[in-house]
């Protein structure tokens, strides 16, 4: 009887959390953002409910500015694993033709992400929303519970969180209220990559280095993914060996110069790197404590 390795312990803990959601809530949903953390969560859910299917739908809030490859990957995985996929975009935002280039990252994120998420959650009437946030990502997340209570306006109150002890989770809520559940809270970025490597979990190829057309934009390099990028920017694009440490809206996701084209090379690069994962995300830099404010407003 060997003690379980750290990854097997984390895996078992996450599966426990996913099953608790399926057992204790009547209408759960799992957020699916197509990134590596979502891929791990999906893999854990597949394990938790085998030989059956994942008993809740996956929800993708599509800002319509995601990398094209992400959308192809998402639809292919839905077919391969046979999960129910719900895609939501903010219809008002679409009418206004919201663009991160024209309106800036703050307006785009507010309308196409935060607002769209609220719409999707209200429409679905979900009582539990499973998300892929990790506590190592950002300081305000280190304090968040695994089962994190939200009032009927989806708001988080960091000063009034329910105590969370052992692995006994309080799942009691009133009608209209909900919980956000974070099964991979205790995983670090390194754990995620090691697990993807060991379990051979499929992830989008954007994580691997390749020659891609990129251009300097607001202090980082972004990739030319379609012709909605303003022409004067597109014209300045050059091919470079790059990859992405996180995936999101292509105009808001910084590429890094890299030659890491395999998982071990990515992990090596990560271990030797001098900057944290979120640095590539433009939205965090807006203001100090930015994430905490966004979370209180209802952003994940």
């Amino acid at each position: 009887m060997k003690p379980l390795t750290h990854l097997k312990q984390l895996e078992a803990e996450s599966i426990h959390i996913l099953r608790e959601v399926a057992a204790a809530f009547s209408n759960p949903v799992m957020m699916y953002s197509v990134g590596k953390d979502s891929s791990v969560m999906l893999h854990l859910a597949m394990k938790a409910f085998a030989p059956g299917k994942v008993p809740f739908p996956l929800l993708h809030v599509d800002t319509t500015w995601k990398f094209n490859e992400m959308i192809e990957f998402r639809d292919r995985r839905a077919k391969e694993l046979g999960f129910d996929l719900i895609v939501h975009s903010n219809p008002e935002g679409l009418k206004m033709d919201i663009s991160p280039f024209a309106h800036g990252s703050k307006v785009h994120t507010d309308i196409m992400k935060t607002e769209a998420l609220k719409q999707a959650l209200n429409k679905g009437g979900y009582d539990a929303v499973i998300g892929g946030a990790r506590r190592d990502e950002e300081k305000s997340r280190a304090k968040e519970r695994i089962f994190s209570f939200r009032d009927d306006q989806h708001r988080w109150d960091p000063k009034n969180q329910r105590p969370e002890l052992w692995n006994v989770y309080n799942t009691a809520i009133r009608k209209g209220e909900s919980v956000r559940v974070f099964p991979i809270s205790n995983w670090t970025e390194l754990d995620i990559w090691q697990y993807i490597y060991l379990e051979q979990i499929p992830i989008p190829s954007l994580y691997f280095a390749k020659e891609r057309p990129v251009v300097e934009y607001e202090g980082t390099k972004i990739m030319v993914d379609d012709d909605r990028m303003p022409e004067e920017l597109r014209n300045k694009a050059k091919n470079e060996m790059v990859r992405f440490r996180t995936l999101g809206c292509y105009p808001l996701t910084g590429a890094i110069n890299s030659t890491a084209s395999t998982l071990p090379e990515i992990i090596k690069e990560m271990l030797l790197s001098k900057s944290s994962e979120r640095e590539g995300r433009l939205i965090d830099k807006d203001q100090e404590g930015a994430m905490e404010k966004k979370k209180i407003e209802g952003y994940f």
Binding site: R135, D136, K139, S140, A142, K143, P158, K159, Q161, E292
Partner: peptide, 21 residues
């Protein structure tokens, strides 16, 4: 020290989880 309000008070006020290996 995590949350903005705590930083201003100079104390931590809740349970936070940290990771290293």
């Amino acid at each position: 020290d995590g949350l903005q309000s705590e930083r201003e008070q100079g104390i931590t006020i809740d349970v936070a989880y940290r990771f290293f290996a």
